[in-house]
């Protein structure tokens, strides 16, 4: 036993040192390549900038051909992110002609997780064919949920939509915890809003995903969704209800006063706080009594949201705060006083 400890320790330390020496050697060899890649990247970026001026496709293609594919892909797409319109389209065309699409597709299949996500994002910039097939395959079969989410987003960018339920099923339950879902839902076209709203009201779906769907819907700024948000505001899930109240604060609704006032009495403090914020944004003076009531809420966040909302109600709000601040000492009085004293920078 004792000699085993000694022998093993010597063997392990010798082995670790040997591996480290190999890694140092590998680094020496790699160092040259890193310098070459950095030079190549610089040359290619210069060529891309020149192309913006002279549109010399041949020169750009030669520059792309003179560097290793991964350098061309990284630099090319980094440059593309700065462009829009015709110039963007022309450079995409040259990158495709240079055969970089196949390199990206190979990365999507065989790269590490970070490379696969990046490849999925790059395919969204290229022409739909054959990107859609590759992205669909990644959505169907990639082992990483992050890659599957990236593939789903890119497919939407390329205009290839699959039924929402099917996409979520492919992303998997664990992937459905990510806030990236909001990005995915935000890419749904206006024709598919119905699919999102139908999903958001399904109580058997995870509330986090339903709330994400509502957040994405709110970003559309579509006033026609007001009724849907009004309905969702009464959802038993606090996540969903709070998201709907926030959405109503953005889009508004003819009955918004009543809905927000009702939400201010919710048993969930997050919903009460969001309702107070929404009331402030909407500027409904008729909600001032409910807001004053919230100045005495158990939760500080709710009290503060109510105070700020009242301050947003211009003269009426400020007068109310001043009156409350000069009343007898209480939680309401203190919050009114704090909000009145708050600097603009706060």
């Amino acid at each position: 036993m004792l000699s085993f400890i000694w022998t093993t320790s010597i063997a392990l330390s010798a082995l670790s040192l040997a591996v480290m020496l190999l890694l140092i050697l590998r680094r020496v060899l790699h160092q040259r390549r890193t310098i070459d890649d950095a030079d190549g990247r610089k040359r290619l970026l210069e060529a891309l900038i020149r192309f913006s001026g002279d549109s010399d496709a041949g020169a750009l293609q030669r520059a792309i051909g003179s560097v290793r594919p991964h350098v061309a892909v990284d630099s090319g797409f980094e440059f593309l992110a700065l462009l829009r319109g015709d110039e963007h389209a022309r450079i995409v065309g040259i990158l495709v002609e240079s055969g970089l699409a196949s390199h990206i597709m190979a990365q999507l299949k065989r790269g590490n997780e970070a490379a696969r996500i990046h490849a999925a994002e790059m395919l969204a910039v290229l022409p739909p064919e054959p990107g859609i097939a590759e992205l669909s395959a990644a959505l169907d079969g990639d082992r990483s949920r992050e890659v599957r989410i990236a593939a789903a987003i890119s497919l939407c960018d390329l205009g290839s939509y699959q039924p929402l339920q099917l996409v979520l099923g492919k992303i998997g339950v664990r992937g459905q915890r990510s806030r990236r879902l909001i990005e995915l839902f935000s890419r749904f076209s206006s024709e598919r809003v119905g699919e999102l709203t139908a999903f958001a009201v399904r109580e058997d779906e995870p509330s986090f995903v339903r709330a994400a769907a509502i957040e994405a819907l709110a970003r559309t700024g579509d006033l026609n969704l007001a009724d849907f948000f009004r309905h969702a505001a009464g959802d038993p899930s606090s996540d969903v209800s709070a998201a709907a109240i926030r959405a109503l604060g953005t889009t508004g609704h003819p009955d918004v006063g009543a809905i927000v006032a009702e939400a201010m009495a919710s048993k969930h403090w997050e919903v009460r706080a969001d309702a107070a914020d929404a009331a402030g944004r909407l500027g409904g003076v008729e909600m001032i009594d409910a807001l004053v009531g919230l100045l005495d809420d158990e939760e500080w966040t709710v009290r503060y949201s109510a105070g700020r909302a009242i301050r947003q109600l211009n003269t009426t709000g400020l007068d109310t705060l001043r009156r409350l601040a000069s009343s007898d000492s209480s939680r309401t009085q203190r919050m009114a006083s704090l909000v009145l004293g708050e600097g603009q920078a706060a």
């Binding site: 004792l2 000699s3 400890i5 000694w6 392990l12 330390s13 670790s16 040192l17 480290m20």
Partner: peptide, 21 residues
């Protein structure tokens, strides 16, 4: 004594070098 030396010194080398690896 050798076992103690191994635990204090040589395994220490292994662990540190492996972190670097």
């Amino acid at each position: 004594f050798l076992a103690f030396t191994a635990l204090v010194f040589t395994y220490g080398v292994t662990v540190s070098v492996c972190s670097l690896i």
